[in-house]
Amino acid sequence: MNTQPTTDTDTDTDEKRGLSFKLDMQAYTLIIALVLIAVIFGFFTGGEFLSSRNLSNLFSQMSVVAVLAIGMTLIIVAGHIDLSVGSLVGLTGGVTAILHVWYDWNTFAVVVAAIVVGAILGAWQGWWVAYRAVPAFIVTLGGMLIFRGILIGLSKGQTIAPMSNSFKDISNSYFPFGLGYLLALVSIGMLYFWTVRNRSKRKDMGLLLPTQLIDYGKIGVYSFFILLATYMLNRYHGIPTPILIVVLLAAIFIFISNKTAFGRYVYAIGGNPEAAALSGINIKRNTLWVFISMGALAGVAGVILTSRLNAATVNAGNMYELDAIAACVIGGTSLMGGKGKVVGALIGALIMASIDNGMSMMNIETFWQYIVKGLILIVAVWIDIASKK
């Protein structure tokens, strides 16, 4: 009888395949959870939760937290935290409204100003963390108080409104139906192109390839949800502009985190700072840029929020930092650093927004919403810790 012994290479390959399957299951668990939430709230609201109008409002409402979650993913992956983003959203939104209403700046100028102000304040915080070794928790906790105080001082405690029609269109306009479907097809085509390209590159480099069923099965699942979402949104007024902004920013930061040296450095720094330093990575400079990008994204979020509310208030952005952190953790980002994905954070933001929206539609009292979101956050962190053990 001719028996072939099992080699170490075979064992390693089996382990890698098992790991790949485990990671895929972790990613799809979020999608399954989101589908279950939609089914449950759809049932208890008589289908109103899944109506095109409510889905459009839901996507618009989640856009601010989604933008913050994109930047927060890199912050947490790098091994830090940012508690100031809610106050920074309020401050950049306030600066936008002051320049637009009081000083008659045009829409383009105030949007650029908000992003620049956010980036500068992010750089200020990053300098303290990276070059003065002050823990990010303390720096951003101080920033949360400082930025809120600056907003109150600049606005004199007033609500600043109204905004011009061109500025309101940032968050209250919709993409035309035909262009929405075209954008969906282009997105699916890009997914297929990148999958084929990545498989070809991995094959040329002799790396382990996932089965075609896994790779192209992912494209099938993603394509189904993209087309379904486009169809449902087009039944109302079309795709909300804020969601297009979120998708564009997500695509940019997914590319940065996966395809650039900076992205790889961030994951290395969060995974093992000592090893990253010994390998020649400039930890201070990269940490600074992580905080700059977070500040710039907070500026974008401030513009979206101010446009949606058609006003800037001293309470704008309150507690948004906790929603952004919760979205990242629910999406699989580890608070220990070195692990996390932008797509997961976006799904986490959608889960949080869906819970808020669904419970509000069921007329459940507000305190229950806080309790449920808090419990979900604790369970998500526990799952992360348990999986590491």
Results as ranks from 00 to 15, higher is better:
A276I: 12
A136R: 06
F137V: 06
I120K: 05
G47D: 14
A326C: 15
K373F: 04
D204H: 02
W382C: 02
W368N: 03
S87M: 13
E365D: 13
G217T: 05
M144W: 06
G206M: 13
R285C: 00
V221Y: 03
P162S: 10
I31Q: 03
L305D: 06
G340W: 06
T366K: 04
M352F: 02
L244P: 00
Q26I: 09
S87C: 08
V35S: 04
T45S: 10
S155F: 06
T140E: 14
G338V: 11
T11K: 13
T333M: 11
T159R: 09
R308F: 04
R53D: 10
N286T: 11
N318F: 04
V290S: 07
S187Y: 10
I269G: 01
T230E: 12
A275G: 01
A312M: 13
S51Y: 08
E365L: 01
S84C: 08
A298V: 04
V329H: 07
N198C: 00
N57P: 00
M352L: 13
V266S: 06
T9G: 00
A316E: 10
L297E: 07
G344K: 08
G220H: 13
D12M: 02
L145V: 15
V77C: 09
V95M: 09
I292F: 01
R235P: 00
L145S: 15
L375E: 13
Y222I: 14
A353V: 05
V329F: 08
M362P: 00
N258F: 02
I138D: 11
G344T: 10
L335H: 05
L227S: 04
D8H: 02
V89W: 11
G348D: 12
N272T: 04
